Amino acid sequence: MSLVPTSSIIDSARTAGIGAAAFNVIHLETAEALVTAAERANAPLILQISENCIRYHGSLRPITRATLALAEDSSAPIAVHLDHITDAELVRQGAAAGVSSFMVDASAFPYDENVATTAALTAWCHERGSFVEAELGKVGGKDGVHAPGTRTDPDEALAFIDATGVDALAVAVGSSHAMHERTTVLDKELIGRLQAALPVPLVLHGSSGVPDEELQRAIAAGMTKINISTHLVSVFTRSVRDVLGADPALVDSRKYLKPAREAVAQEAARLLEVLRTPIAAPDRYAAQAPVRG
């Protein structure tokens, strides 16, 4: 299948009532691991490259071009998405490189400024056929910017979508970025109300802190795109520590990066199965998604 648009993965998942997995790339080893996972699970996957990842690599081109090349050569449907982008220039560079979707993150701004910034970049992206995700409600835990405990208001979210034209919305329903323990309980009632009120797919950020069954309940309630980063980074790092701890004299980085890459591939493949396994939605939060006209 190789490289596909992000929109095709999200639309198919939303129609099927399953999760669209979006896992973050940190470096080449994680990108390779994630593509391997998608191939093993025979499942589509969105590879996300964050602005922080781009800064780590010095510029957009090296990690983005490598990730796109892996997607193009894969037997699984793989999309490439830029995540939490605050710099409009990176959106322009990403579009030129062949990235099909962007998460425009103006959520640290006051509401009116978030709307204006998001609307301008969304219009630019739509002129080039790109899919745009934005955030409303401030998901907790990201660099101290987002207020934990905030919830997205359905009426405000609908007004935001109408004003900006975004194609997907990341909403605050109880998750938090960069969690190391998978203990979060999400507000499924709110997810159901948001799903019923909004004409676009819902995105869950901070999914690393959410247990498997709770992710499945969130999808049943109406969540579609599920972003996971910290959990898989922890799997990678734990493997490196274990290998180096067992052999402190080891110096060849390939000998500790290879098992870490395999550990991430195994866990990512397992998560893909979790997110694609539907469960019944309780009546109290099941709702029919509206169709955008």
Rank of each mutant, 00 (worst) to 15 (best):
K142F: 10
L121P: 00
T230M: 13
N114G: 11
R14F: 00
A95D: 12
L3I: 14
E273V: 13
E89Q: 13
A168G: 11
A246Y: 07
V240S: 07
R217H: 09
Q93V: 01
F109Y: 14
A76K: 02
S101I: 10
S229H: 13
K255I: 03
S130G: 14
F109D: 12
A196T: 05
S208M: 02
E156D: 14
S50N: 08
A22I: 06
F160C: 09
A96I: 12
I226C: 04
R92P: 00
G141T: 02
E127A: 15
T122H: 12
A71V: 06
E127F: 08
D73C: 14
A41Y: 07
H27N: 15
I279K: 13
E133C: 12
V200S: 05
I228N: 08
I191Y: 05
T183W: 02
A268P: 04
L3K: 14
L60D: 02
G149R: 04
I191K: 00
A88M: 09
S253A: 12
P278S: 10
H84C: 10
R55D: 06
P148F: 03
G209D: 00
S50Y: 08
E32Y: 01
Q48H: 06
T15H: 11
R292K: 14
R241W: 03
L198K: 00
E51W: 07
T118L: 05
F236D: 00
D105H: 09
T64W: 05
D143I: 00
A13K: 04
G17T: 11
S208P: 05
G209F: 00
I161D: 01
V233F: 15
E39F: 06
R193S: 06
A88P: 09
A22T: 06
Y256W: 15
V203S: 03
P278W: 01
A269E: 15
S130Q: 14
R151C: 00
R241E: 12
A220T: 06
R128P: 04
L202F: 01
G98P: 09
L204M: 15
C125D: 05
T184N: 12
R61H: 10
K258L: 12
L275H: 02
L68G: 07
N114E: 09
L275G: 02
I219K: 07
L68F: 05
R276L: 06
Q195P: 00
A106P: 04
V243W: 00
V243T: 13
H81N: 10
A119R: 15
S50T: 14
L190S: 04
A71P: 01
D187K: 11
G206D: 02
T184P: 02
Q48A: 13
P77I: 11
Y111R: 14
P290V: 11
T67Q: 03
L70K: 01
T152L: 12
E51L: 13
I18A: 04
A159V: 02
